[in-house]
Amino acid sequence: MNTQLKDPNDVSVGRTKEMFHRPTDIEEAVSCLAAHPGAVPIAGGTDVMVGVNYRRLRPAAMIDLTGVVELREWSDEGDAIRIGAGVPYARIIDDLGGVLPGLAAASRTVGSPQIRNRGTLGGNLATASPAGDAHPPLLAAGAKVEIASTAGRRTVPAADFYTGPKRSVLAESELIAAVIVPKAAGPQQFLKVGNRGAMVISVCSFALSLDVEGRAVGAGIGSAGPTPLRATEAESIELPWDKSGPLGDETVERFGALVAEAARPIDDVRGTAAYRRHALAVCARRALLRAWKELLCDWN
């Protein structure tokens, strides 16, 4: 205790030095989490502070992640972009729109400018709301989540990350270090259904990712199940990759139907299960048509 009191990074005074921690690297952050179980990590605060302000959450201690340099940076890893868990949406939009158009499009729909200046991928993943907007594009792109603890690092595919409503494989002693997103290998789309054009929690959302050379389709569904979902059946649809012909109406219809089938929606305040399925089919068809149109432009 006394030795910890001398920590120059700790601004707290007296006996309460354990109230607020300011690690500057991930190793320090995970040690801090291990030493203070129950301490609540805070990044942008856009989820956690709502809970605190409304007294649903009364943390005795918090760990500020905004000073952890590695979390605030993104880097080009060749085939993929490694995005630190603490990079706010505004920077994803500004810096990564070209290489990760799907994730950037989803980021543009998050909250408001003020929320996008603060909110992070790490916070979205840790909260693991089925309605979180980052999830569908991460699923569609086949992203991986890098998790850190005092035991070291592990990497989990986004598709295995979510385990239930607001639940994930993240243990109490772990932090999300980064998200590794393969660079777009073709057109990507994100569509979100909400009550108005800004500041909406999605009623349902859909992300599509086409890999032209690999002839692969990625499809992620948001807000229409206990977790964000991959539409695996829809992903195995045959498309006229060999440029043998146009995208047939039948293929588009079928893609929409398969995406709707993959959903496991419920009725809630934002919409009924039936509406969500219907809207998802529309989103999926529209996404495929738009992506294909983009591809045809590239081909011609």
Binding site: M49, D64, R118
Partner: peptide
């Protein structure tokens, strides 16, 4: 940067 001050923890602002 524009932020909503209700969702920033003061302790983050040293």
């Amino acid at each position: 940067e524009a932020v909503v001050s209700c969702l920033v923890a003061t302790a983050q602002c040293e």
